[in-house]
Structures are given as structure tokens and as C-alpha cells.
Design a protein around this nucleic acid. Structure first.
Length: 456
DNA sequence: AGTTACTTGGC
DNA sequence: CCAAGTAAC
């Protein structure tokens, strides 16, 4: 009997580990382990737990249709897993355990422990990535540190995406054991499961892809794919996405979306090669600014009470739904770092706690980009202007008014010029002077560079 | 995956 | 005058 261990790969199609296990010609059984306290240490919030829960239920049904029983355990910490899994292998006569490579340090450490301690072999497979991370190197054999050349190389190397089918149905097996108690009250905007993901993907490709290049930057429009929660839980694989993309006519929209898929690959590639990133180390520590602790400012940013309409709209969308439009994520991140001078790790943690699509690699990569200490980082002097961004991307103020109802009466022109607003007495005045704060950041950083230059 | 000031070349 | 391009931050 072969055991497939599911983690953030909650699907039956294009699942290398499941496919390989089924190839063995023995009955296949499946296991999922909820680890709430361990997840909390990873800044995983209630929404992501809910999202995993809902998708595990959908996975159970999909697996049942293939005759594969899913057992769900609850082990609060990763440390609880090796002994229990070892015992199961002995009791149930498991011949081998199959899973995908994890990217976080704790996930990798657990895999290593299992590989060392289980009474049976642990087979690990690359998840259905678009490229082989270990094979992508620069001409000099080094690692890419800038997105554009990385993406160029990927486009050259990318095999035509061929997603694997779900395994052939087997004679239904009895469940290994009764499930542990684990339940969540699911209150999310996304329907769970592979079928919902496939429908969303198909609709996006047919209806929105051709306009994606133009529409994706307008937070008031439904111009993005909205697939990120499915990617984060592995309900949809990037190969399935790239395959659907390859069935569509090429054009600006298709190229832009492929680029976004490759940004995701780039951040996973970085984490694959630099495991310390998952301990929140900067990729380039020398490029860290001097962060200033300010709990009151952090709280105002988190609550969407900064007095900058587009920033507040984004943070309130995040708090209300667990999702924020990407354009606004970049602005909110830039604001925390460049205007409030608060450590990007606090922003990274807050996003992770709130996001339904929270993904270690993408979230960390995005924050380090914004903070200027990561790969392909925004230079220290580059900061988003909250006013300029709303003028360009929310010209009518529709997005702002949707999430900040106090501003309903304020004309768009005023919103882009900045408050305080006479027509919105309940809305706070801007908490800082944007120009002065970004200038201070730049000056501070320059001085710091001077000091390190003298010191060396 | 930015913003700004300045230049240039068109009308 | 404006649009597009460029350099610098």
C-alpha cells in the first residue's frame, strides 16, 4: 500500500506525488495533517486555515471518486508527526510515503526527519512547477537575482506544459483510521475545490485574458485572475494554468499573465535556493534600512486609518475579505516601509495573517522587493506615491469609495490631492507628510551607505 | 512592479 | 502647447 501525504497541493489532477504513487500498482491511501499551532508560528491566520479546511473536504470527495480514502489528522506541532506517521506505516502495512518538496525551513526539516526516521522510504517530488529550479542558472552558473533575465531564461526553457491526469480509479479502499476532530466555520468569497478552480481559470482565459494587460492594474475592475487562493493551497497547479494559457491566442494579455506566473516561479526559485528567506532574513542584509518601531503607526496602517485613501481602501479590503488587489498591495507595502519606516517583517506577518492566498514565497518576495533588500529590489529611492497611484489607477475613486464609505461624498479630484477632507469629517487627516517621509527615508539610507563604506 | 524634471520634436 | 523620450533620484 502506498501513502500520499497532502500539504499545500490539495488536488488530484497534475499531482506528481499522487501520480507516481498510483503507478506502483498497489492500493493508494491519502493523509492530510492539520497543524494549527505550527501554522500560527508561520503567521497563518484563521482565513487560511478555513481555506485549507474547505479544500480538504473537496479533496476528500475527489479522492473518494478515485477509490482513495483520505484520513485527516490533527497534530498541533510538526514534532508530533514523525512518531505517529511511523506507527501508522507499521500498523497499516504502508510500503512508501509520497509527497512534494516543501520550501519552508520547518517543512524541509520535517521531511528530513521523516526520511531519516520512517520505517519505509519517503519519496519526494518536485511539485508541478513551470521550470526545474535546480536547473535554472545564469551563463556563469550562478543564481538569478533579477527577474527579467530569469523570466527570459524560463521562457526559453519552459517545456510545453503537460499537466498530469488524475490517477485511474482503483477499487475503493476502507479508510485507514477515523479522522481527528478538526473543523472550521468557512466564511470566504472563494468556492473551494478543483472544479471551482477550473471554472475560474476557464472563465478568466475566455473572458478576461485578452484585456488583462490593460485591466489588471485597476483595482475597481475585476481584471485580475483572482486565482491566487487556488495557487496558494495547490488546488490549481501553475502547469495547469500555463496549459490553459497556451490554448489561448497569444497577445499582450497572454504575455502579461505568463509574466505574472513567472514572478511566482521566481520567488519560489529564490526560496528553493535560499531557505533562510523563510526565517525572514533579508536576501541582501546590507540593503536593510534602519527601521523605526511605532506600534501606534503600525496599528493605524493595519486598520486602514492612515488618512491616505487608496492605502486605507486596500487595507480595509484585506481585513474584510482576505484578499487585496495586487496594485494596492504594492502601494500599501511601499507605504509601510518608505513612509512609516516600519520593518517590512511586520507588514509581511500582517499580510500573511490576513490573506486567504498567503504564500510564503510570494509574500516574502513581494515585501523584500518593496523594502529594497530582496532580489530585483526596488531601489531605495523608489517609492509609490499614494496620490499618484490613485490618480492613475483609480481615477474615478470607485475602489476607494467601495472600501472607505466615509469618503462617499468626496470628489475624486480631492481624493487624489489628499486630505483632510471637509466632506468627510470622520475620515482621519493624513498621518504623515508623504514627501517629507520618503525624502527622510532616502537621506537616512544614503547616510547609512556612506557609513558602511567608511567602515569597510 | 515608480516618480519627477527636463529635453526634444511635433503641431 | 503637448506627447514621448531620457536621466536622475
Amino acid at each position: 500500500m502506498q501513502l500520499v501525504w497532502f500539504r499545500d497541493d490539495l488536488r488530484v489532477h497534475d499531482h506528481p506525488a499522487l501520480f507516481a504513487a498510483a503507478q506502483r500498482g498497489e492500493p493508494v491511501v491519502a493523509l492530510y495533517i492539520a497543524s494549527p499551532q505550527q501554522w500560527q508560528l508561520h503567521d497563518c491566520g484563521p482565513r487560511k486555515a478555513q481555506w485549507h479546511y474547505a479544500n480538504v473536504q473537496a479533496l476528500r470527495e475527489a479522492l473518494a471518486g478515485l477509490g482513495i480514502p483520505l484520513t485527516v489528522w490533527r497534530c498541533e506541532h510538526f514534532d508530533d508527526i514523525p512518531a505517529r506517521l511511523g506507527a501508522l506505516c507499521n500498523e497499516a502495512g504502508i510500503g512508501a510515503v509520497h509527497c512534494h518538496h516543501g520550501l519552508g525551513v520547518n517543512e524541509r526539516a520535517l521531511e528530513q526527519k521523516l526520511a531519516d526516521q520512517l520505517p519505509v522510504p519517503l519519496h519526494r517530488y518536485a511539485d508541478a512547477n513551470l521550470v526545474d529550479y535546480s536547473a535554472i542558472t545564469t551563463g556563469q552558473g550562478g543564481l538569478y537575482q533579477v527577474f527579467t533575465p530569469f523570466a527570459r531564461r524560463c521562457r526559453q526553457w519552459m517545456a510545453p506544459p503537460q499537466p498530469l491526469p488524475a490517477p485511474e480509479p482503483q477499487a475503493a479502499q476502507p479508510p485507514l483510521q477515523a479522522d481527528d476532530a478538526w473543523s472550521e466555520t468557512v466564511d470566504l468569497l472563494w468556492p473551494a475545490g478543483e472544479q471551482a478552480a477550473a471554472r475560474t481559470l476557464a472563465r478568466f482565459c475566455q473572458q478576461r485574458l485578452s484585456a488583462y494587460h490593460d485591466d489588471r492594474d485597476w483595482p475597481a475592475k475585476a481584471g485580475t485572475s483572482a486565482l491566487s487562493p487556488y495557487f496558494a493551497a495547490g488546488v490549481l497547479s501553475p502547469r495547469q494554468a500555463a496549459h490553459a494559457l497556451s490554448q489561448q491566442a497569444d497577445g499582450e494579455g497572454a504575455q502579461s499573465w505568463l509574466n505574472e506566473l513567472l514572478w511566482r516561479e521566481f520567488y519560489r526559485y529564490l526560496l528553493y535556493h535560499h531557505a533562510r528567506l523563510s526565517r525572514h532574513d533579508a536576501l541582501f542584509p546590507a540593503k536593510e534600512a534602519r527601521w523605526e518601531a511605532n506600534d501606534e503607526w503600525l496599528r493605524r496602517w493595519q486598520q486602514g486609518r492612515t488618512g491616505f485613501p487608496l492605502v486605507d481602501a486596500g487595507m480595509r479590503q484585506l481585513n474584510a475579505t482576505g484578499w487585496m488587489h495586487n496594485r494596492v498591495r504594492m502601494l500599501c507595502a511601499s507605504f509601510l516601509v518608505k513612509d512609516l519606516h516600519i520593518d517590512w517583517r511586520l507588514g509581511e506577518a500582517y499580510f500573511m495573517q490576513q490573506l486567504v492566498d498567503g504564500d510564503l514565497a510570494s509574500n516574502n518576495g513581494g515585501w523584500q522587493w518593496a523594502a529594497g533588500c530582496g532580489a530585483d529590489a526596488a531601489p531605495y529611492f523608489r517609492s509609490f506615491s499614494p496620490y499618484r497611484q490613485s490618480e492613475r489607477f483609480d481615477p474615478d475613486g470607485d475602489y476607494i469609495r467601495q472600501w472607505v464609505p466615509e469618503l462617499a461624498e468626496v470628489p475624486a479630484r480631492q481624493l487624489h490631492k489628499g486630505g483632510p477632507f471637509l466632506l468627510a469629517p470622520d475620515y482621519p487627516a493624513p498621518m504623515v507628510d508623504h514627501k517629507a517621509q520618503t525624502a527622510r527615508f532616502t537621506a537616512q539610507f544614503k547616510q547609512q551607505m556612506e557609513e558602511t563604506r567608511h567602515a569597510s
